[in-house]
Nucleic acid binder design. Structure first.
Lengths: 258, 258
DNA sequence: CGAAAATGTTCGTTATACGCACAAATCTGG
DNA sequence: CCAGATTTGTGCGTATAACGAACATTTTCG
């Protein structure tokens, strides 16, 4: 049953997409589901959902107790294929640990994916956000320091696409709320080479980020330190955090394979 | 073209399995590949590999520059479905950070998958292993402290399956090398409720682990602290690290949803 | 305990996915 | 710079993988 959404039908493997959708339906709120629940949430017929689930079980990606299905750690291999293919894989984490040792704040690395930043490495200290953050976590790019840095590093045409699609949904009263203000913030980030976001993502949360570049000066990822307003002033972030971050980013860049 | 390996052919979705295999072929050593390379490494015809790659690109899991294909961060969503469905998701990391603050050593959480442990959370400090470790990384269960703990918590029939398949491949001269010695180590672990592994996985590396249980006392995961032989004696690991770990594991267990 | 709901299974059908073969584009060595 | 080698793009006939409806069976629940 071809759908128009596929566009070029002849090179589209619908069964793969459906199977991936089955994996994606599992979540913190749906850690395990019956066959009918999976079918409903993944938008499949019960028979199709059953075939996908049984296939995932056979291949070790999922398991069942006879009634409920849940994912197995083998699914992490898929994400690990991506993580281990990152050029800064292997070198970033020790350098990030040095940052944490120096500043006693959480340090993270992320990349841009559509409207979001996605965490690819993290050395946590004090919990700084209400929600737990982990490799694979996503946050909106427009109101995060790493997002501002990644957006500032986009070629103009890609940035234009981002602006076309972004929805400026406030997370706090301080969240940037107009396109003019967002563009100005990104311009400022591009000019000064770093971004500082103060309580736009969550009240109390402050973070400062810098770009990690490859040898062609393209922005590959963003590196940040995040803290709580009660622990670090904006001044301390600029005078102590920023130099450490710039140094760490430079060290990561210098360690990249050619 | 049905293959005998599928067994129950009628409930097996071969296209899903092939597509997942395409994702899995990317790695640190093959961060990007041409179409023909993917076909070769994934064991597919060039036409099939092409359809899968184009489908992954369409859905945002991969990208291409017109010649080379590479994975995109959206693949991390798949692993994140699994991570976020873990019962200790959200509560483990802050507690692990407390452990790191108290002991100044790396703390990790892992689950068992076949012959391996798979890292599901990590608060790193000093780099303790030669290879970088991250969420999704795998290590052999038989010669790691977390592996010993997870194996000790297996029901007898599952442990028997593990013994049937395990290959005791030495990683150092100290690696346990006989089934008798391995079984004794696991029995000891079960009896004392923790495992200490000293330079079996890698020279210089020491780690101590305890089980994280649910309310029915089933072992869900293992929690460890790892250090270097030069930094911590075996005595310090037992007298300082172990109490902190037991306390942390208990706090994680107490925080699990019902 | 019976009705409702969920799951298992069969099977006819179709369209999904296949792979071969040829065209086109790219690369490389002389 | 060009010809041959290699790789990729694509069409298309075909096979069968995957589909889903319908019915059987099992499980759940009031």
């Amino acid at each position: 049953m071809r759908s128009e959404e596929a566009g070029e039908d002849k090179d589209y493997v619908q069964s793969l997409v459906r199977g991936l959708e089955v994996i994606r339906t599992f979540s913190q709120y749906k850690p395990r589901m019956t066959l009918s629940e999976v079918a409903q949430h993944a938008g499949l017929t019960r028979a199709a959902a059953r075939r996908f689930l049984l296939t995932l079980v056979r291949e070790g990606y999922a398991e069942t107790d006879g009634k409920y299905f849940s994912l197995r750690p083998k699914v992490l291999d898929l994400g690990f294929s991506y993580l281990s293919s990152l050029p800064m894989w292997e070198v970033a984490q020790p350098i990030m640990r040095d940052v944490v040792n120096a500043l006693h704040e959480s340090c993270s690395l992320s990349v841009l994916d559509g409207q979001d930043i996605v965490y690819v490495a993290r050395v946590p200290t004090e919990r700084v956000m209400t929600i737990g953050l982990s490799i694979g976590s996503r946050l909106p790019a427009f109101c995060s320091s790493m997002g501002r840095v990644l957006l500032a590093g986009l070629p103009p045409t890609e940035l234009a696409v981002f602006f076309d699609r972004v929805k400026l949904e406030r997370r706090t009263e301080r969240t940037v709320a107009t396109m003019v203000a967002l563009k100005d913030a990104i311009d400022t980030t591009r000019r000064q080479g770093w971004a500082l976001v103060d309580q736009e993502l969550e009240m109390g949360l402050r973070s400062i980020a810098v770009p990690v570049r490859n040898r062609r000066s393209e922005v590959l990822a963003a590196l940040n330190v995040s803290t709580h307003e009660g622990r670090s002033s904006l001044e301390v972030m600029k005078t102590r955090f920023l130099p450490e971050l710039l140094d760490a980013a430079q060290r990561i860049s210098a360690s990249l394979p050619q």
